[in-house]
Deep mutational scan, measured.
Amino acid sequence: SQVHIGNTTFTFDNPEKAQKYAEKYAKKKGLTVQKNGDVWTVE
């Protein structure tokens, strides 16, 4: 599972961890999370 934030990609061994990280980061920065398969993009 991966989380894309700008030009940075974070890889997680667990989809739940990836989703939590993406949502927490997005909330903190006032951004949105797009999910595509097991990839979350914060923008």
Rank of each mutant, 00 (worst) to 15 (best):
Y25E: 05
V42W: 05
K28C: 15
Y25A: 05
I5N: 03
K24C: 15
K35G: 04
K35N: 06
Y25T: 01
A18P: 03
Q19P: 01
K20L: 13
K28Y: 11
K20R: 13
T8V: 14
V33A: 10
G30V: 00
K29F: 15
S1E: 02
A18E: 00
K24Y: 14
T41F: 13
G30M: 03
T41L: 11
K29A: 09
K28P: 03
G37W: 03
N7Y: 12
Q34G: 05
W40R: 01
E43S: 13
N14G: 06
Q19C: 11
K35S: 05
S1L: 12
Q34W: 11
Y25S: 01
Q34K: 13
T32G: 04
N36T: 09
T41W: 09
D13H: 06
W40V: 00
E16A: 12
T8H: 15
W40N: 01
K24R: 13
I5L: 05
A26N: 01
F12P: 00
I5W: 04
Q19G: 03
T41I: 14
V39A: 08
K27F: 07
F10W: 10
V42T: 03
E16M: 11
N14W: 05
G30I: 03
T8I: 14
Q19H: 08
T41R: 08
V39H: 11
V33G: 01
Q34V: 14
N14R: 06
Y21Q: 02
F12W: 04
H4Y: 07
A22W: 04
G6C: 15
F12Y: 03
N7L: 08
G30Y: 03
A26L: 05
T41A: 04
T8N: 11
V3M: 03
F10H: 07
K29V: 06
E16D: 10
Q19L: 09
F12I: 03
Q19D: 02
Q19M: 10
V3L: 06
N7Q: 08
G37C: 03
N7H: 13
V42F: 09
G30E: 01
H4I: 15
S1R: 10
G37Y: 03
N36C: 12
Q34R: 14
Y21G: 01
Q19W: 09
Q19Y: 11
G37F: 04
Y25N: 02
A18W: 03
N36P: 01
N36V: 14
W40S: 01
K27N: 08
N14M: 07
A26Q: 02
Q34E: 07
Y21W: 15
V42C: 04
K29G: 04
G37E: 05
V39D: 09
K29M: 14
K17W: 09
K27Y: 07
G6W: 11
V3N: 02
G37P: 02
L31E: 00
G30T: 04
K24I: 10
A26T: 02
H4Q: 13
F10S: 03
V42K: 00
G30R: 05
I5V: 08
N14I: 07
A22Q: 00
V3T: 01
K27Q: 09
E43Y: 14
N36H: 11
L31D: 00
K20Y: 12
Q19E: 09
N7M: 10
F10N: 01
L31Q: 02
G6A: 07
V33H: 00
N36K: 11
T8C: 15
N36F: 12
E23H: 07
A22C: 06
E43A: 13
T9P: 02
E23G: 02
D13V: 08
E43K: 13
E43N: 10
W40Q: 00
H4P: 04
T32K: 11
T9F: 15
K24H: 11
G30F: 05
T11C: 15
P15K: 05
E43D: 12
I5S: 02
D38R: 08
K28N: 07
Q34I: 14
D13A: 12
K27S: 08
Y21N: 00
G6Y: 11
G30A: 04
K29W: 15
D38H: 07
Q2L: 12
K27W: 07
V3A: 03
L31P: 01
F12A: 01
K17C: 15
T9V: 15
V42R: 01
G37K: 05
Y25W: 11
K24E: 14
F12K: 02
G30L: 02
Q19F: 07
Q2H: 12
T11P: 03
V33K: 02
K20E: 14
V42G: 00
D38P: 06
T11A: 07
V42Q: 00
L31K: 02
K29C: 15
D38I: 06
G37R: 04
G30C: 09
K27G: 06
K29N: 12
V39F: 08
F12Q: 03
P15N: 07
Y25Q: 04
E23W: 08
T8Y: 15
T41N: 06
Y21C: 11
K27L: 07
F10T: 03
K27E: 08
K27R: 10
V3R: 02
E23R: 07
K29S: 06
W40F: 09
V3H: 02
Q34P: 02
A22M: 05
Y21S: 00
H4T: 10
W40D: 00
G37L: 04
T11V: 13
N14Q: 07
V3W: 03
L31S: 01
Q19N: 05
T8P: 01
A22K: 02
Q34L: 11
E23K: 08
I5F: 06
T41D: 05
T32D: 04
Q34M: 13
T32H: 07
P15S: 07
Y21A: 06
N7V: 07
A26K: 02
T9I: 15
Q19K: 13
K20W: 13
V3S: 02
F10R: 08
N36L: 12
A26R: 02
S1T: 11
Q19V: 05
K17V: 12
V42D: 01
K28R: 10
P15I: 05
Q2K: 13
E43V: 15
Q34A: 09
G37M: 03
K29E: 06
K29R: 13
T9L: 14
Q34N: 12
T9D: 03
